[in-house]
Amino acid sequence: MPNSELMPIGVFARRTGLTPSALRFYADSGLLPPARTDPVSGYRYYGADQVARAVELRRLRQIAMPLGAVEAVLDAGPDDSARLIDEHVAKVLEDAEAVRQRAAVIKSSLANVPGVPIATLKGPVLADAIEQVLTATAPDPGMPVLGAVRIEATREAVTLTATDRYRLATRTLVPAEPAASAWAATVSGDGLRAAVSAVRRSMLVRVEAASHGIRLRTADGKDQHCGLLSEEFPDHRLMLASLSEVTTRVTVPKDLLLGALEAHPDDCLSLVVTRDGLKALAADDGPPGFSLPAAVTGQTLRVSFELTTLYPAVSTAIGPDVMLDLRGPDQPVTVRSADRGDLTTLAMPVKPDHPA
């Protein structure tokens, strides 16, 4: 390669986002040897055709991939490279969860206080409840509580509640073994999400409170630890108590509604509820909206939703039929099972996207 086509290490570093010291390290390790090294001065020169490999190397190192795996990815074809990256990410997540669990155990043991029994619940039921209410959470670095779950226990029930201000989901469970006293705390949603798989495989799960979190004791003895949040949880009881009267009630087969929502082409949909059923308006210049048979009582109403708000609320409803309690175009809709009330979700409408 002619010298005019070669770049000194400083220029190559600026082109690729790698420091000169990193380039020397990767050259010495064999991952990215220079195109030419001056035998007298020792200066290293790189070719333009090495820029892509250097940039990819930098990106792989940014996701903490070890050198051996980086070399395998760089030298593999697209399909094998994607598989190797997926395997690395899975390993990182597995390691991170193991660290989180160990950290929770360490924090729990710092106070040297045994866990306080809260309740014993059926594992598969608790796992379903966790997944259902987590649909109403959202990651928000400014308000971590919006990604958390409020757990409240009495002798009669254990209630899980989550809200991201646009949705609210609450599920009530009957404990197999009730607690001796009332207890409440706000629990990390990420911790609960990570624990779901182990919880689902255990017939019974004993919930214990520790100083820095809760301990979910499973049948296999591999306890799951979830951290607590100190931030105040939104006043969901006030939210529920302040709901206006239901003006329109719709009962529709869950599978039919889900199928229609999945096929809807837009991010937002406007629903018209009449005595004839439930209809979605067509988008401008788009395909016709859907019409579904439904049992309707109350006033004719038009209301609009973001699909990402309404779909999770419907999908987690229990049973074959879903009930929508509507209060107006700008009021929360209650989504629940037509025959079971232990899971309730509120979803906020949005401004209609179609002219009246």
Rank of each mutant, 00 (worst) to 15 (best):
S197T: 14
D220I: 02
K107P: 01
G319M: 08
A176W: 04
A295P: 00
Y43M: 03
D321I: 09
E94C: 12
G123R: 00
P355M: 04
A129L: 06
L292P: 04
G289M: 08
D255Q: 14
T308H: 14
A90D: 15
R302W: 04
K351C: 10
M203K: 12
A111N: 14
A82P: 08
T163E: 07
A169P: 00
P144Q: 02
I106G: 02
I9H: 07
D266F: 10
M65P: 03
M239Q: 12
V252C: 05
G227E: 12
R206K: 14
H88T: 04
F12T: 07
E262A: 13
G191T: 06
P175Q: 01
T159F: 04
L278Y: 05
A241L: 07
T137R: 03
T120D: 09
P114G: 06
S108W: 05
D190C: 01
R83N: 06
V149Y: 00
D339T: 15
E156P: 05
S291M: 11
M323G: 06
I214E: 02
W183H: 12
S197H: 13
A356H: 11
L324C: 03
M143F: 15
P287N: 09
E177S: 11
D95K: 11
A148N: 04
L301S: 01
L32Y: 08
L301F: 01
E177N: 08
L324N: 03
R36W: 14
A119D: 01
R165N: 11
P287T: 12
A241R: 15
A162N: 06
R58E: 08
A219F: 05
K107R: 14
V205Y: 09
T247P: 01
D255L: 13
K279P: 00
E306T: 10
A347S: 13
A22G: 09
D86W: 11
V51T: 11
R206W: 02
V55T: 12
L121V: 08
I63C: 09
A76C: 09
V51D: 06
P78Y: 08
L67H: 06
S270L: 10
P349F: 01
R237G: 13
L269E: 10
A162R: 01
A195I: 06
A82H: 11
A127C: 05
G17R: 04
D223E: 13
K122F: 10
S181I: 06
P117I: 06
M323S: 15
L60H: 03
L160P: 00
V273Q: 00
G328R: 00
R167H: 07
L343I: 01
A260Y: 04
A283F: 07
L31V: 15
T274Q: 04
